[in-house]
Design a protein around this nucleic acid. Structure first.
Lengths: 225, 225
DNA sequence: CGCGATTCGCTACGGCTCGTAGCGTAAGGG
DNA sequence: CCCTTACGCTACGAGCCGTAGCGAATCGCG
């Protein structure tokens, strides 16, 4: 029964007691090799044999650290997420939103990131346990950016109560739209697109002027043409 | 050199000239089996051998119709898309938007749909040709719903010029957000969520009250308290 | 210094998948 | 009636995942 420091990040105390310690340089080499292969050959290009070969390590060494290819992929991308946090004291809510959008776009701009992310999401579609891990270890940490933005907005007086912003919805909108734009529409997140989209999001957060279908709109039927 | 009626839909004239014709019942059985396996075992559960077995057909018969597993999957989901079109004469823009949102949610509510879709998108991340096919055969047809909604909105006088609505952006927002909500956040598209999100989208399409960071924040645009 | 514990590299494997090839047979069309 | 094509079957090559078994290397500890 191995594991202990596996699963990616839960470490804490000196996990090792006695015996030969694990090579930390091997850890880095493996994760680097994994990202390299992901960038080169996509999700299908990430094979345990190739990772081992490129890292100059035996395949056994991989499985001593991670149980499966999924675990390795999660570890490889989780390490890229790094510490988040908005830049100190943005001027207003719009700037913070735009910053979050830009961060997501930059993340998905890396080939190794998008291939791993989509590969994991695809497999998680029929694997609730995997989906849960991805959500908790990869996605949810990013959600803090939105929470932080909301806190600041309230501190600035831009919104009255925290309920004015539905964090879950805003997050799904930003993350989902950026993914769709870059991965499916296959277009880069240009500056103008980011600003355009940010305007849409900020506008959408305004107090709902259009109530959920109040009644038949008193509107001229149609006289155009 | 086979193919002809393969690739999923391009048929037109009686493709067949002489020799034994292809069994159309086999076509249906294969696609049904593929969807069935997708629903049961996800993207990994879709194996050519199992599809053939469940359809009561030889594996050779599959490859006589589609070149690869990707082609089969595309054909299987493309058939489910059916004819789109909004319901006749919705009352207003909001109702049309809500309808589109609901359609996407219903689509992704089917397990065979989401597993196939995400599997294809994941693989397409490092395969431009595949990505192009998915975009043109699966995604873009759906985009017509937004175009149609915009046309109606203009006819009703709800918007001045077509430029008031960026179809590509709106589409990415709707498709991306629904996918993120259902697949990553793993929550169902409840009625209240659909209405909440629709309100967000409709509000976001209003004439941009917040310009792209014009200058030092004159004043918080909205405040209470 | 020696000893137990653990890791490492290597090789080999079982099971599964994709996609192809070869062959005899079935079912249409001119 | 014969030619052409589809069909079913079996077998195969190549690739991948994850595991097992083995000697050799490297640490902590007494």
């Amino acid at each position: 029964m191995y594991e202990e420091s596996a699963s990616g990040q839960a470490d804490g105390p000196p996990t090792q007691r006695k015996g030969r310690p694990r090579s930390t340089t091997a850890d880095d080499a493996i994760l680097d090799a994994a990202r390299s292969l992901l960038a080169d050959g996509g999700w299908a290009g990430l094979t345990m044999g190739d990772v081992a070969a490129r890292a100059g390590v035996a395949k056994t060494t991989l499985y001593r650290r991670w149980h499966s290819k999924h675990d390795l992929a999660i570890a490889a991308v989780a390490e890229m997420l790094g510490t988040l946090d908005l830049p100190d004291q943005g001027p207003d809510l719009r700037a913070d939103i735009e910053d979050v959008v830009r961060r997501f776009a930059a993340l998905l701009g890396r080939p190794e990131m998008r291939t791993a992310l989509m590969g994991l999401v695809a497999d998680s579609t029929s694997d609730p346990a995997l989906r849960r891990r991805i959500r908790e270890e990869v996605v949810n940490p990013q959600k803090r950016l939105v929470v932080e933005g909301r806190t600041r907005a309230k501190a600035r007086g831009e919104i009255a109560t925290p309920d004015d912003i539905d964090v879950d919805l805003i997050f799904d909108v930003i993350a989902g739209t950026v993914v769709q734009h870059i991965l499916v529409s296959a277009e880069p997140a240009s500056d103008t697109w980011v600003q355009h989209f940010t305007t849409f999001v900020v506008t959408g957060m305004l107090p709902h002027p259009t109530q959920p279908t109040p009644e038949p709109p008193a509107r001229p039927p149609l006289e155009a043409k």
